[in-house]
Nucleic acid binder design. Structure first.
Lengths: 242, 242
DNA sequence: GCAAAAGTGTTGTGTCTACACCCATGT
DNA sequence: ACATGGGTGTAGACACAACACTTTTGC
């Protein structure tokens, strides 16, 4: 076991030509806050294996496309991809037993859609609360939970909230989004102060009129950037001398 | 574009059978602190493409093995895999142009080895400081830097330091390891207090005799766990009422 | 005693939590 | 006036950074 391996050197490429190759699919955990709950977009399988179980949208990788292009193409069959506010790679699953009868790798992505948009979806497709998932096909259950964990972590140390929120919103609305995604109560007061101090949010100056029950009109805010930025890079072990 | 796609449903599997498939390699960014610097294990390509350039160890995925098993198998040709203290998946690269003349996907792993061990490596293989990398083949440059960033981030909010450190060590030794990995000075005093308060480190009770220059003997410490644990889960947005 | 290295005491600062209180609107 | 919801003031807890100082050794 001491001969150097040579990925993609000519001799290896030659052997790769005759080599058995896996199929490769891309999958997406598409999350959106709907009805105050974090929900995932799933479609129901009609055929074996896992007939009747729900599955993540996705499909086979095609030549000349990247993984990201692939998942965007497959998602286009389920939702209007332009409504996705964020897309990032999660992980690649490779258990040879993950799909019966086929050696299939799967690269999962996390997609996020802002609250409010309600894309048309096909007959077999529906949103499901992530904390009450139905029976999922293959390894799609753990993948979905990994997507939620990624979202929760990044809400804490990045500006990823922009991907769940509309362009303009009140702090109370944003608090509800964070609470739905994080799975616990979030303080309006502190959320506002943390995000404004970090300069993640900025006031638009506009106000929203109160409802029929009255109340002080709420100020409107927006995210300063709608690109992912790390806002709290190091929890500890900061470089000295700031 | 509204027909539901069906990954791995029978009809899709049938079409998958005749479908063009990519090759798939696994790569590893193996990092170790050597000579006070963070270094990566690379081998020098003898043949085109990228003859003379340096590359990450790895090779083709074989049927019935997982990605992790694959990278462990290929690494065994370079180093004693039992000396790896940590291995985790980084990302999967899919640019169709990333390897000339071949449609090849690559799943990269991050591997870490504790300071002090010095595995025998083949002729064509050597360690290179990550902050002064030679010309790297393919997309191995950005992959290597992504590995370093993953390490730096996790040193801050997990106990991943265990993977760089020997079983027992003084705080001064650990400080040098963190400084090499993070790329900036680290305070001995504060490193000790942070890691002990978080109960990441524990004193062994033993002491290390000072060198010929004298000095107070140093206490020895160990990591309480040598499995990855998140020790500072949420930088902000903690759940209420702790 | 003196130099060297390790470790602790202490103070300051920045960030977040909690909660009280004030503000602006509808009825 | 009062209810309703929005926003601010302020105090406290906590964790970390910085630095002075003490401890323990070799020479």
């Amino acid at each position: 076991m001491r001969e150097p391996t040579s990925p993609s050197a000519p001799e290896a490429r030659a052997s790769a030509a005759g080599r058995e190759r896996p199929t490769h699919v891309t999958l997406a955990v598409v999350l959106q806050v709907r009805g105050g709950r974090l929900q995932a977009l799933l479609w129901q399988r009609a055929r074996e294996p896992y007939a009747g179980a729900w599955a993540l949208p996705g499909g086979y990788l095609e030549p000349t496309e990247t993984l990201e292009a692939s998942i965007r193409r497959h998602l286009a069959a389920k939702v209007d991809v332009r409504e996705l506010s964020h897309l990032e790679q999660l992980e690649t699953r490779s258990d040879p037993e993950r799909v019966p009868g086929e050696w299939q790798l799967a690269t999962a992505y996390l997609g996020l859609a802002p609250v409010g948009v309600d894309p048309a979806v096909p007959e077999d497709t529906a949103w499901h609360p992530v904390d009450r998932l139905p029976r999922l096909a293959f390894d799609h259950g753990p993948i979905t939970l990994a997507g939620r964990e990624r979202l929760r972590a990044k809400l804490s140390y990045t500006n990823l909230g922009f991907a769940l929120a509309p362009d303009e919103f009140t702090i109370a609305q944003l608090r509800d989004l964070y609470a739905a995604a994080m799975g616990h109560h979030v303080s309006t007061t502190n959320l506002q102060r943390v995000l404004v101090r970090r300069r993640v949010l900025e006031a638009t100056g506009a106000r929203r009129d109160p409802g029929p029950a009255g109340g002080r009109p709420a100020g409107l805010f927006r995210f300063r950037s709608r690109e992912l930025e790390v806002t709290d890079p190091f929890a500890v072990l900061r470089p000295p001398g700031r």
